[in-house]
Design a protein around this nucleic acid. Structure first.
Lengths: 139, 139
DNA sequence: GGGACTTCCATAAGTTGGTGATATAAAAAT
DNA sequence: ATTTTTATATCACCAACTTATGGAAGTCCC
């Protein structure tokens, strides 16, 4: 399939759009999740982010150290750790989002209008493809 | 921009499509480059792959150890190291490509036909966006 | 209510793939 | 013939994972 080849290529390209920022991929994704859908227990975070539980523990420890997230407790369950995003965390997410958006916009503007339109038109489809992929662990 | 958000999402999704394989992202991308456009000197590889020169040296060392690439020399320049992909390397690239293709196809088939069409239609545009990104180091 | 599992999180130890600083040898320049 | 530049390699270090294991809080079950 040419589609797979195109995706492979696109993936590498996106990879380069990110790297040197203050947040790792998983860190950014986790913070965005916390911002979008509120506090979560640690065990609810690691699976959707696709990392092991110890990795999530360590990530939260890092985020806490940097002041971007906070550990809390659940009064009804002494085992649980409830992770919350802080204001500084929201700022970091916003900064990252803005930086990405600016870089992408600059590139998109140089693209022919019909390419631009094609990408916009495909976004909802890509979104749904993403949903499928989360539901069904791809081999 | 909604586009940036969509890409961010899509990136995370693609990330999950890759990891468990035998090759790291940079390794796969480098092998593909060697397959596509023939032998390269080490110094011609690290910049387009977006890693430092020591990282490329180490990557080539790993690939050599695994038999996927080979170091050669340039008779006209004693400093140069010329990297070539081996048959085993080609096999590895092919296997990876096939695995990805199968996983993606399985998902794409479940998507409504118009989503499928939208993605196919956007591929050339994404390709061109990728070209732009390589030319212009995004902030 | 007192064990026996179970769930949630943390810790330990090891691995991978990167980084910057620096060394070395070959080529180019002055 | 020096000096400078270029192409790799090596070194010490680090970030972010992994698996295996430990311990504490909850649940189940007579």
């Amino acid at each position: 399939m040419a589609i797979a080849g195109g995706f492979e290529r696109f993936y590498e390209v996106l990879r380069r759009l990110t790297p040197r920022s203050e947040l790792s991929l998983t860190a950014a994704s986790t913070l965005r999740r916390l911002e979008r859908s509120g506090p979560h227990r640690l065990c609810e975070l690691h699976a959707p982010e696709g990392v092991s539980q110890p990795a999530m523990t360590q990530l939260i420890t890092r985020l806490e150290k940097e002041g971007l997230a906070a550990r809390g407790s659940d009064p009804d369950d002494g085992r649980a750790v409830v992770v919350t995003i802080t204001d500084a965390g929201r700022d970091a997410v916003a900064r990252r989002r803005e930086g990405r958006t600016r870089a992408l916009s600059a590139l998109l503007e140089q693209l022919p209008a019909e390419d631009h339109a094609a990408i916009v038109a495909a976004l909802p489809a890509l979104e749904r493809l993403g949903d499928l992929m989360v539901e069904q662990p791809p081999a």
